[in-house]
Design a protein around this nucleic acid. Structure first.
Ligand SMILES: [Mn+2]
Ligand SMILES: [Mn+2]
Ligand SMILES: [Zn+2]
Ligand SMILES: [Zn+2]
Lengths: 156, 156
DNA sequence: ATAGATATTGATACAAAGTATCATTATGTG
DNA sequence: CACATAATGATACTTTGTATCAATATCTAT
């Protein structure tokens, strides 16, 4: 059984992010107007690599109303270009999404977010879902870890 | 491969909850004092089968301070007898935990929570973790579904 | 049983992460 | 340009908690 599994676990993707899409264009394609505020928000997000909180984005954009930052991020979430994930205590964190379905790792020490995708997990989850009464409409999964940097760092 | 998987997915547990433990005794064992307020809270929780929110519990116990309800639930979480899980929008929900590691299903229509445990998922997750840099310290996983009752119910 | 040490409580305030209102402003369209 | 509509931002409000701290309950030792 262990042998079988080790064969099956072969395709973990942790590839770097591909060329970033034009988020404003994506919003326009959905019929939303390209306002200066939305331009400001997406431009900041396009430069942010790791995860971020909305308050952090809002703090860096004092010229854009807080509600508008939330509204824009909600649109991007709905468009699927952002993911909302949860730290172990439930605190929300956002990150740019890749096109394909994937999941995240979160360092419990420093909060750094990573991505991974593994078809075996997905297939097993589908199989599990088939055994459970009701129609599966989605799932959520996060792996919590202590990243290499935080392992090196002395205790704080 | 499909055949293999269907063989491997053999041990999904959705067994009904076993005899409930004495929550107050668990708290006492950890050195916490058995106060009337804690008695009230755990006694209510022991009668609650499905998921609940803290505000809901607090609302049903007007004689216990809101902060104390939160504090008690936090103790039970730390003791491992409660699970905190997240609806798709991130809204928190609590449920009595079983002793063994497991995960939850949540109906996206009515919010009903179910439990499941599957060793294959766990093994695959461990294998995935082994491929990821850093030391895995935990994971979170929820399956979202439309339960049978909600499938039957006409659109609301 | 009483006293003193300590844990717990509850009222209140505060915080984080949003959402609802609604008058004002910007944008797109003809 | 004119008008309809979409978007904004200030503000208030909501939800899910946590921090303070004086008052109270509980435990322990005498
Ligand atoms: Mn997945
Ligand atoms: Mn698990
Ligand atoms: Zn780290
Ligand atoms: Zn349901």
């Amino acid at each position: 059984m262990i042998t079988l599994l080790s064969i099956m676990i072969q395709n973990i993707n942790t590839t770097p992010r591909a060329s970033r899409p034009d988020l404003l264009a994506i919003l326009e394609d959905q019929g939303y107007r390209p306002t200066n505020q939305r331009r400001d928000v997406v431009s900041l997000l396009e430069r942010k690599g790791e995860g971020f909180t909305v308050e952090e984005v809002s703090g860096e954009l004092p010229e854009v109303g807080r509600a508008t930052v939330y509204r824009t991020i909600k649109l991007l979430l709905k468009a699927g270009v952002l993911c909302k994930l949860a730290l172990p205590d439930g605190a929300p964190k956002y990150i740019m999404a890749r096109a394909e379905h994937h999941h995240h790792t979160v360092c419990v020490k420093c909060g750094t977010v990573g991505e991974f995708r593994d078809t075996t997990v997905e297939r097993v989850l589908r199989a599990v879902g088939a055994e459970i009464p009701g129609e599966i409409v989605g799932h959520r999964m996060e792996l919590y870890l202590v990243c290499l940097d935080c392992q090196d760092r002395p205790e704080g």
